[in-house]
Write a protein that binds this DNA or RNA. Structure first.
Lengths: 213, 213
DNA sequence: CGCGCGATACCCAATTCGAGGTACGCGGTA
DNA sequence: TACCGCGTACCTCGAATTGGGTATCGCGCG
């Protein structure tokens, strides 16, 4: 084995995902790489922050959808303490908004779970080298919608209520604003998402990861 | 090794999932079990059917959401040719409707991807022994909604159109029926799903796996 | 054979939604 | 400073949605 060839010089990796079998797969793949070593695992964002503090990995593989604390929050938390932390987002594709938020939170890479082993290993080495690793199709999706209008925070709040079945009047009560204002927000939402009605607006927002179910 | 202890008597397993790393994890876990052997892998439903024909596994682990051919269709296809096929559904929880359809298609087990390695191995042995393996929480969810009304095929068609932003009039045109009929369907949908409006009906249907995005 | 259920269709009434327009205060930016 | 985007609020109006009723047809089930 080439394990003894470069002791202590391997890329130290932290894997964060709530699926044990997926972590197992990552562990198995990394174990086969002579230049990598898995130094920690975590099943949610909270544990990820703890694990990062204690293990100080070179590269962190981070799922986005997790219980306790989601990936974006975990990335933000880690990057605020360790601004040089190199993090690769690992996820089943759920829209450009998620990807964008993760990258804005400080992720250096984005990897779909459908990626091949080699692609993951390449991404790890790329990110470890200080470069970023974002698949062209993701970059394209982001570019498309960054050009378009992003929803404001307030608009997203409104849309979240609407997704739960609230009528404009109910949204108005929950957000402590006038129903007329809700209508204005809805109008802007429909324009920005190019939706014909509130229902389609919700499905579009869901598919882009702007809101969650 | 115990490999030579019981040659040819191991549980022969087929793993079907479009995530390479997850398959890798399953492979690694199975490799550690003395009474199991992975005899094939597939990345979608179509390949799964082919792989089943050629390898005749004792137990098949099958993801539900895959490109080319989804898990439910693959289970149906396999079970129609091999009625005794033992199949465990492996998925991130996406609603009781999905689970129910998989079980109706002939699955013997249901396993969340967040399951621990031991849980998966236990499920494989249970299903191999001819028993079924369904987590209590899934069984409960199914029971809850089986008691409630299930949407009819036509109602699901209508709801799918609505989710895409179609107004009643447009749904009527697409389905070649009167707008009045669409209204009746919508009324029944709202009743059955206990939704206050069409938007909530869509989000509820999405969360239960009745329709997809 | 009758019964219920699903799908079809129509009528009516009340409410909600979506699309116009106008307006003002508050930040940030050209 | 002037402009722009955001959030707020109001007005009107036509279209869409929702809830109620009635009725026909076909199909499966007891």
């Amino acid at each position: 084995m080439s394990e003894s060839a470069a002791p202590g010089k391997r890329i130290r990796i932290l894997a964060v995902d709530d699926h044990p079998m997926l972590r197992e797969g990552i562990a198995a793949a990394i174990a086969r790489q002579p230049d990598m070593v898995l130094v920690g695992e975590a099943v949610n964002g909270r544990e990820a922050v703890e694990a990062f503090r204690s293990t100080r990995p070179d590269v962190t593989l981070m799922d986005l959808q997790m219980p306790e604390m989601n990936g974006v929050a975990a990335i933000s938390a880690i990057r605020s303490d360790f601004p040089t932390a190199r993090i690769i987002v690992l996820t089943t594709y759920k829209g450009d908004a998620q990807a964008l938020r993760a990258l804005q939170a400080g992720a250096s890479g984005y990897l779909l779970k459908s990626a091949l082993r080699k692609e993951m290993m390449d991404a790890i080495r790329t990110v470890f080298a200080g470069r970023s690793s974002i698949p062209p199709e993701i970059a394209l999706q982001i570019a498309e919608h960054v050009a378009a209008d992003a929803l404001s925070e307030r608009e997203i709040e409104v849309l979240r209520c609407v997704a739960r079945g609230a009528a404009n009047k109910e949204v108005a009560i929950r957000l402590q604003i006038s129903e007329e204002t809700v209508k204005v927000h809805m109008k802007h939402i429909l324009e920005k998402l190019a939706a014909t009605d509130r229902t389609q607006a919700v499905t579009i927002a869901l598919s882009r990861g702007i809101i969650e179910l």
